[in-house]
Design a protein around this nucleic acid. Sequence first.
DNA 1: TATGAATGAGACTTCATTCAT
DNA 2: AATGAATGAAGTCTCATTCAT
Lengths: 218, 218, 218, 218
Amino acid sequence: MPQAVVKPRWRRRKNARPEEIISAALEVFADRGFAATKLEDVARRAGVTKGTIYLYFENKEALFKALVRETIVPVIEQGEALAKSFTGSARDLFEQLVREYFRLVGETSLSGIPRLMIAEARNFPQLARFYYEEVVTRGHRLMGGVLERGIKAGEFRPVNVPIATKLAMAPLMHAVVARTAFAACMPEGFDVAKYLDTHIDLYLHGISATHRTDSRAD
Amino acid sequence: MPQAVVKPRWRRRKNARPEEIISAALEVFADRGFAATKLEDVARRAGVTKGTIYLYFENKEALFKALVRETIVPVIEQGEALAKSFTGSARDLFEQLVREYFRLVGETSLSGIPRLMIAEARNFPQLARFYYEEVVTRGHRLMGGVLERGIKAGEFRPVNVPIATKLAMAPLMHAVVARTAFAACMPEGFDVAKYLDTHIDLYLHGISATHRTDSRAD
Amino acid sequence: MPQAVVKPRWRRRKNARPEEIISAALEVFADRGFAATKLEDVARRAGVTKGTIYLYFENKEALFKALVRETIVPVIEQGEALAKSFTGSARDLFEQLVREYFRLVGETSLSGIPRLMIAEARNFPQLARFYYEEVVTRGHRLMGGVLERGIKAGEFRPVNVPIATKLAMAPLMHAVVARTAFAACMPEGFDVAKYLDTHIDLYLHGISATHRTDSRAD
Amino acid sequence: MPQAVVKPRWRRRKNARPEEIISAALEVFADRGFAATKLEDVARRAGVTKGTIYLYFENKEALFKALVRETIVPVIEQGEALAKSFTGSARDLFEQLVREYFRLVGETSLSGIPRLMIAEARNFPQLARFYYEEVVTRGHRLMGGVLERGIKAGEFRPVNVPIATKLAMAPLMHAVVARTAFAACMPEGFDVAKYLDTHIDLYLHGISATHRTDSRAD
DNA sequence: TATGAATGAGACTTCATTCAT
DNA sequence: AATGAATGAAGTCTCATTCAT
């Protein structure tokens, strides 16, 4: 990242190259993982040659980082914008965020990113930290905010927010991650719609202020 | 470290080498992933030389496969045995299986295996299939059986078992997988005990036959 | 090619570019050597882009050759002019040539050129020949002429001129070459003035016609 | 698949390998310089493959350093040993050291090393420092010791030892360096023997205590 | 059974050079 | 005349794999 300063921005704007490369990289990284991805494949898919990648990214790792930055972070930001402007109930916001996440990530090649990060986090501590802070933590903050909103509004019981947040996200994350990993092994498929419906229903039921009387959760 | 089974020492000596290698491989693979693992590191940790590995395993991939086979499947088997001999309520069995899984996998280096599989499944379709069938599906069958047992006994509502099974497992799997991946990024730590407690509580509450009146889940 | 250019002011501009490039090349080549010099660095220092270099020089090697031609040869010519017009004693001419060489080459970035040639001569036989003939031989001829002049005038003993010439030049050349190479390693510095003084004194003493009586040198 | 050509993979003892590689490296580096040397060429000349080099040397630079260490430093040590055990006059010791240096370095492929160092010193500051300290400085100390010995014995005038040392060495160094660089350009050859004779004679005469009466050099 | 020296295919990365604008 | 995007050959280095001992 040393020369990020020198790279004139208009060059990016004017030329679609970096975006094309990142887009190609997303496909290949998502398919094969970090180490097994050959830059030549990325280049070919982007319609350029190996050398061109190095005009825009310092090395493979930098490309990987840019990919994460440019693709996943915006999804989080979109969710934050939605939450900010949302005027309905916390339940509805919860449901909408969950479904939106699946629409944007779970069912696109972006789903490869969480899997990649889980796979490579330990080998790229610096990137892992970036991702954890800019995506995971931020995502948790977003979801945590929804829960607090519901608690304040009396829709949700006063649960332990950090834990409840993790439990709200885990089924989403795992479905995204495992589905892309084992897609080829699930000929019967995976009824995502019903999975989501059920998660939303069970989860909202679980933290709803109106149904419980005997919870141990604090 | 695999299971310290108590058996006559000299007798096992014959098989000790491959087991030592697999044990070393578990540590290294779990730490670094498949591609980033050097056989030399595995060898060193096993106290042998690279060449020796090839006496027992055809190649790196075969070692990886053996590792998966030898370490994870027994955990499933143990769970199956527990379920078979269990005489208490489905709720208690559910709780015990969940906690046992965490004890055996989530908090040992075995936790690296699911992460590895998720990372590499697409690059090793054959291994992915093996894992999916011998671990994932079998795990689901085990958990699904518990749910059915509870439904039959009138403890649980008659939910869609496959979906409910996945929703029971996802928080476990995700916690195991994400925790090892991002361990270094979570200085605050992760209160696993409370996470488990809450999951068990919320989940059992959600499918309990006695509390719900308005569920959309079928 | 646009013709009908309005010339006046831009006329010198036309030749300015190659000179600027050569000047930049001198700095970079002298600093880093041939292979380690990137044309991009030369271009940047010349205030142009890489492509521009190729408008004036066929390739890196041609630039290198032009650099040698344009920078060093004039120094020789200047020495030749001095010798030609010099009217004093051979001793004084010798001293003046030595000091002038150091002033023009030894203490400017031109000192990088001999070092470069020594480093790369074997990789560029054609250039080496050019340099050897246009610089080394010509320099030797110049210095040899001085010696012969002194011998004829009875100032110097009738030594073996080619050998004596080489011995006159070697300390100069080596000082120039080694000083730039190891500049960073000589914190104590190198008293060039005294080095030159001593060389001149010892050398002139050695070949002086008036002091020796027992030399084996012929 | 080539049919079972029985090519013994390693005939020699492990111990010999590094030396063989260094020996091959000397030839190639001396011929082409550092950057222009391909490790594959070194390998081929050593009768091994590229990879083998990396068993013994961390990288190209390390090989280069080892080469310097193993080849030139011993020459210095030999000179030091000679000086230490020498019982004759300082003049004779001087002469012997000069001739020995030429025999061991100037007329073997070791002569490529000084040239290499001069060429690459600026690009490898760390190596330059090593060489400067272990070779240049040590060589100067050796020669300076001889001069001091002669001064103490009344053989030499009380000259400025550091300067006189440099002037004693420069013709040697330059001859070694320039000869290998321009060997191909000197069809007439270079009468090394006479060059050395004359240098020794002139130099010894110059610092001799018995001949001078008018020196400016102090 | 075990070793460890040796291999060589393959990946990343660099940079001189080209060419459309 | 000048640019700057693009190329692709070439070199360093890695490491799974082999095999004589």
